[in-house]
Simulated assay, not measured.
Amino acid sequence: MHPRNQPPGSKPRASTPNPTPPPPKTAQFSAPPQIYNKAPSGGGGPEPKPAQNEQLPASSRQGDNPSLARVQQVLARVQLLQEDVDEFVGRKTDKSYRCLEELLTKELLELDSVETNGQDVVRQARKEAVQRIQAILDRLEKKAF
Rank of each mutant, 00 (worst) to 15 (best):
V78H: 07
V78K: 00
V78L: 02
Q79D: 08
Q79K: 13
Q79A: 10
Q79H: 14
Q79G: 09
L80R: 14
L80Y: 11
L80C: 05
L80H: 13
L81G: 01
L81A: 07
Q82R: 14
Q82N: 13
Q82H: 14
E83C: 03
E83I: 02
E83S: 10
E83Y: 07
D84M: 00
D84L: 08
D84H: 09
D84W: 03
V85I: 04
V85H: 05
D86R: 07
E87R: 13
V89H: 11
V89N: 08
V89M: 05
V89R: 14
G90V: 07
G90W: 13
R91F: 14
R91P: 03
R91K: 12
R91G: 13
R91S: 15
K92M: 10
K92G: 12
K92A: 12
K92D: 06
T93M: 15
T93F: 10
T93H: 10
T93N: 13
D94R: 11
K95C: 01
K95M: 12
K95F: 15
S96G: 05
S96T: 08
S96F: 03
Y97D: 06
Y97P: 06
Y97S: 06
Y97Q: 05
Y97I: 09
Y97K: 03
R98Q: 15
R98S: 11
R98H: 04
R98I: 11
C99K: 13
C99P: 02
L100V: 03
L100E: 06
E101G: 02
E102Y: 12
E102R: 14
L103K: 15
L104Q: 03
L104T: 03
T105W: 15
T105Q: 15
K106H: 15
K106Y: 15
K106C: 14
E107N: 10
L108G: 12
L109K: 13
L109P: 02
L109C: 07
E110W: 04
L111M: 08
L111W: 08
L111D: 00
D112A: 09
D112P: 01
D112C: 05
D112Q: 12
S113E: 14
S113G: 09
S113Q: 14
S113C: 09
S113W: 11
V114Y: 05
V114L: 03
V114D: 04
V114C: 05
E115M: 09
T116S: 14
T116V: 04
T116H: 02
N117E: 07
N117C: 06
G118M: 07
G118Q: 01
G118Y: 06
G118I: 10
Q119D: 11
Q119M: 14
D120T: 01
D120M: 00
D120V: 00
D120Q: 07
D120H: 02
V121W: 00
V121A: 12
V122R: 00
R123I: 00
Q124M: 15
Q124E: 13
K127D: 03
K127T: 04
E128A: 08
A129Y: 00
V130E: 13
Q131H: 08
R132K: 13
I133N: 04
I133A: 07
I133E: 01
Q134T: 04
Q134H: 08
Q134P: 01
A135K: 09
A135P: 04
I136A: 06
I136F: 01
L137E: 05
L137T: 10
L137H: 08
L137P: 03
L137D: 05
L137I: 12
D138R: 15
D138T: 15
D138G: 14
R139T: 11
R139Y: 02
L140S: 04
L140Y: 05
